[in-house]
Amino acid sequence: MTRVIEILPAGGWDVAQATDVFAADYEGRHRRRMMLGLRSGEKVLLELEHARLLQAGDGLKLDDGRIVRVEALPEKLMEVTAHDPLHLMRLAWHLGNRHLPAAIDAQRILVRQDHVIADMIRGLGGHVHEVEAPFDPESGAYTARAASHDHAHGEEHHHHHGHGHSHSHD
């Protein structure tokens, strides 16, 4: 059984070295342990200590020396836009306050579909459009999925945001 032995961060390796591709949506790329089906039809074992999101462009170094490129498949998302950059920043703050995975650029924020969040954004004066695009959210040490998993299992986290106080998640 061929295994993944190292994850090479996007931008930190030569993509020309890739011999195969692992393509999946957000859920399919957020894993701790699973058999990954490659584009060639081969299957390789991913076994990590903790679940993490495989970002588009990451390389999966295999125990036989080959490298597999990670690709994000298009999926249905909500595109959040605003009437000016400051308004978009405020909407980003509200989304971040809910620990939602989000892909952010200067013109828009992409989040997974959720009618409650869509209603909140509209209530704050933002615009929501359904789009289909690869979802590669900002990476961070603390993800919404990890938080919801840990809460369900009674685990407590304290994380510091560098602004004079920490948030406890009980």
Rank of each mutant, 00 (worst) to 15 (best):
Q113V: 15
I121E: 05
D114Y: 02
E75N: 12
L60N: 10
R32N: 03
A102N: 06
E138M: 09
L91G: 01
H30S: 11
K76A: 15
L91Q: 03
H153G: 11
A92Q: 12
G162L: 07
A146M: 13
V116K: 14
I117N: 08
H161E: 14
M78P: 01
A82D: 03
L124M: 09
R98Q: 14
Y142F: 15
R90P: 00
S139L: 09
H165L: 11
G59S: 06
K43N: 12
A118E: 14
L36C: 09
M120K: 05
R31T: 00
H129M: 11
S40N: 02
R33G: 09
D64I: 05
G162E: 05
I121G: 04
L91H: 03
R145L: 15
N97E: 15
G28R: 03
L124H: 05
L62K: 01
P74R: 06
A118W: 10
R69P: 00
Q107K: 12
T81F: 07
P74S: 08
L73I: 07
S139C: 06
R108A: 12
L62W: 05
I109M: 07
A118D: 15
H50G: 08
E47H: 13
D150Y: 13
R39T: 06
S139T: 13
A72M: 05
A82L: 07
L95F: 04
H158K: 14
